[in-house]
Amino acid sequence: MRIVILGDTHIPKRGKELPERLIKELSGADHIIHTGDWITMEVYDKLKCFAPVDGVYGNADGESVRERFRDREILIFNNLKIGLVHGHGEKKTTEKRAIEAFDENLDCVLFGHSHIPYLRYHYKTLLFNPGSVTDKRKLPFYSFGVMTIDKDISVSHVFFT
C-alpha cells in the first residue's frame, strides 16, 4: 500500500493550488492522509479525486473542516496502528504533543503544525511530520511524505522547490 502524507496546506492563504510535484505522487496513491490546517474543504474535495482521504483538523481550520474531521484519529493498515494528530498546543514541543496525544502504543504517529519535516523514532514509535507543500517558511524546500506499508512501515520525505 502506498500512502501520500501531507499537511499544513493553508490553501488559499499560502498557496492557491496543490503543487504539480504533489499531484504527480497523488496519481499513484492508494490512500492519502492530511495532518491538518486544510483551511477549506476544497483541499479535501481535490484530494479525494485521487484516492480515499483521512485526516484531522488543525488549529487554523474553520468550522466546515472541524465538522468533517476530528482532532485525532487512529488508522489501521495491515495490522499496523497509525496515530494522526495536528500537534498544536502549548508548553511542549510539537513532537512531544504529538506522541502524548495517544494513550495506546502505536507503530507510527503522523503530525503537522510546525511545517518542519521530521522523521525520528520515539522508542518503537515512528514520528513523522511531512512538512508543508505550500508554506516552507524559512526552510529551503517544500515537502510531503510517501509511506509504503507491507509487513512494516517505510516512510520518506519528498522535497521540492
Rank of each mutant, 00 (worst) to 15 (best):
M1V: 00
M1T: 04
R2W: 01
R2A: 06
R2M: 02
I3A: 01
I3Y: 04
G7I: 00
G7N: 08
T9P: 08
H10D: 11
H10K: 10
H10Q: 08
P12E: 00
K13R: 09
R14E: 06
G15S: 00
G15N: 04
K16L: 10
K16N: 10
E20Y: 04
R21G: 04
L22H: 11
L22G: 06
I23C: 05
K24Y: 10
L26Y: 12
D30A: 02
D30E: 14
I33T: 01
H34E: 06
W38M: 12
I39N: 09
T40A: 02
T40Q: 06
M41N: 05
V43F: 04
Y44G: 01
Y44C: 04
Y44P: 04
L47M: 09
L47R: 09
K48E: 10
C49P: 10
F50L: 07
F50M: 03
V53T: 03
V53C: 03
V53M: 04
D54H: 15
G55L: 02
V56S: 02
Y57I: 10
G58T: 04
N59A: 13
A60Y: 11
A60E: 12
D61W: 03
D61H: 07
E63A: 15
S64E: 15
V65N: 11
R68V: 11
F69K: 14
D71Q: 12
D71V: 10
E73D: 13
I74P: 14
I74Q: 13
L75N: 05
L75F: 09
I76N: 13
I76D: 12
L80A: 06
I82C: 01
G83I: 08
G83D: 08
L84Y: 03
V85G: 01
H88F: 11
G89I: 00
K91P: 11
T93R: 14
T93K: 14
T93E: 13
T94R: 12
T94P: 01
E95A: 13
R97N: 00
R97S: 03
A98Q: 08
I99E: 05
I99A: 05
I99P: 06
E100Y: 02
E100R: 01
E100I: 02
E100S: 11
D103R: 13
E104G: 07
L106K: 07
L106C: 06
C108M: 14
C108K: 02
V109K: 06
L110Y: 02
L110S: 05
G112I: 03
G112T: 06
G112E: 05
H113Y: 10
Y118F: 15
Y118E: 10
L119Y: 08
Y121S: 08
Y121D: 12
H122Y: 15
H122G: 03
K124A: 13
K124P: 03
T125I: 04
L126K: 09
L127N: 10
F128G: 01
N129T: 05
V133C: 15
V133L: 10
T134K: 02
T134W: 02
D135I: 05
D135C: 01
K136V: 12
K136F: 04
R137H: 09
R137S: 00
L139T: 03
L139Y: 07
P140F: 01
P140C: 00
F141C: 09
G145W: 05
M147L: 09
M147H: 00
T148G: 05
I149T: 07
D150P: 03
K151D: 15
D152Q: 13
D152N: 15
D152C: 10
I153H: 13
S156A: 14
S156L: 05
V158D: 09
F160H: 05
T161Y: 14
T161G: 09
